[in-house]
């Protein structure tokens, strides 16, 4: 977890702090950063996933000294970055199927090992659909075998590329194409869905962490930590989707920030199945602040507002704060 620096104007909140030594600078502030995914990709305006992927892979590139292969599941990230015959990837990158990214990555890692090139590191990446639904079987196998792969899930909470269908990571009450805002219980149902960081922790793999695009230093630190470990590692990054969430393109970072500041998205890291650090909430906000700026929750704020549903979501945030002892975390 990032150690917070105080009293230096922006501390470590901004991408760079000119008052601090260069060694403390973020990877993203480096004009020579890898730019793993470069300009010209076809992601929507303000895409959180394009941003999160560059943040994570540039940090992984620095940590691996540029010796790295990325395996990509099907999904937005793959579709918008590689319309044949163009590619936005400036790193070795391969795509196979929607559900098999973890299996392919395991295979790449095995091939590198048997050819004596295990200094080359393997990163697999997928959206939430390719991770929590379609690719869960191969991923669970990769965890169980403790294959030497860092698997990164960019969670935008639905199948965005195909037109915003509900996934196992879609939060309750959110409107998607398949959970429309109609009927007595509009939006996605409560009590369903999968908490993949906790599923990963249950495999007792060496390293599990969550992060968001609202906290660059934290994300980069977690990638760096993950890359320093061998074996199966899992990083779950919240990446807001302006299209699917109905948020303004300029608000992508703000939405992610409110997700953590409300307690709805706990940010933590776990070693060998145990939570070892939690990122504190700096200025706690009610979940309403987070929900209101997203059209996927607009039906909660009609006349009259769905106060019961909002209270239910607030209870989820409160439970996260209890479960991860977020309020006890050192600020």
């Amino acid at each position: 977890m990032t150690e917070r620096l105080r009293f230096y104007q922006t501390g470590s909140f901004a991408v760079r702090n000119r008052l601090l030594p260069v060694v403390d600078a973020s990877v993203q502030s480096d004009p020579g950063r890898a730019n793993a995914i470069t300009s010209g990709h076809r992601a929507c305006q303000g895409c959180g996933e394009a941003l999160g992927a560059r943040y994570a892979l540039d940090a992984a590139m620095r940590a691996s000294g540029g010796r790295m292969v990325a395996v990509n599941a099907t999904g937005c990230l793959e579709v918008f970055s590689t319309p044949y015959p163009e590619t936005s990837w400036q790193i070795p990158w391969m795509h196979s199927l929607f559900g098999n990214a973890a299996a392919v990555a395991s295979g790449v890692a095995a091939a590198l090992r048997v050819t004596g090139r295990d200094d080359v590191r393997v990163v697999a990446q997928a959206g939430d659909g390719g991770t929590v639904d379609i690719g869960l079987g191969p991923l669970s196998g990769m965890f169980e075998r403790n294959d030497d792969v860092l698997f990164i899930c960019y969670d935008n909470e639905a199948y965005m590329n195909t037109g915003v269908q509900r996934s196992g990571a879609t939060p309750p009450a959110a409107r998607t194409m398949t959970t429309p805002a109609v009927g007595p219980h509009p939006g996605a149902p409560f009590g369903q869905g999968k908490d993949l960081p906790r599923i990963a922790m249950a495999h007792e793999i060496p390293y599990v962490a969550t992060a968001t695009v609202a906290d660059l230093r934290d994300l980069e630190d977690k990638v760096t930590t993950a890359m320093s470990i061998r074996g199966a590692r899992y990083l779950h990054v919240l990446v807001p989707c302006p299209l699917g969430w109905g948020s303004a393109s300029r608000d992508t970072v703000r939405v992610a920030r409110l997700a953590t500041e409300s307690g709805l998205f706990p940010v933590f890291e776990a070693h060998d199945g145990e939570v070892t650090s939690v990122t504190p909430i700096r200025r706690r906000v009610p979940v309403e602040d987070y929900l209101r700026i997203q059209k996927r929750y607009a039906h909660l704020f009609g006349e009259p507002p769905a106060t019961g549903v909002i209270a239910h979501i607030q209870a989820t945030a409160d439970r996260n704060i209890r479960r991860y002892r977020i309020e006890e975390a050192p600020v």
Binding site: V15, Q28, S29
Partner: peptide, 9 residues
């Protein structure tokens, strides 16, 4: 602060 340089998707 490099924020513009950093946050551009």
């Amino acid at each position: 602060c490099d924020n513009c340089f950093g946050v551009c998707p």
